[in-house]
Amino acid sequence: MVNMEPSMKESINIKVEFKGGLEMLFDNKLSLDINSKDIEEYLKKQETKTEKLRMLDLINYLSTLIKPNERDLFVDDKRLRAGILVLINDTDWELEGEGEHELEDKESICFISTLHGG
């Protein structure tokens, strides 16, 4: 199989927010603007197909921005660590297909950790 050219697609932009202490994993940045090209590039390196960009791809891409020794505070075996809540455009991602949710242009994704003390 020859892989399809991803360049056919237009790139999309996503806004990612971190709350509940997660920002500490990302240089104390409270939000990041992510372009789909960054994710695609990462997936290419992983030799994963890039036809559709899913939440899971975003999560694994984001984990590459974390220091290696802190990565398991965000991902666990390539999935989002349990105890981190996600909102897609202010809606619980459990209603939006979770990791399989297909990313769309101008979507706003918020990650909130519940693992920090109260």
Partner: peptide, 8 residues
């Protein structure tokens, strides 16, 4: 406020 206790 949500920061992990520095000692925990």
């Amino acid at each position: 406020f949500s920061t992990e206790c520095t000692y925990s």
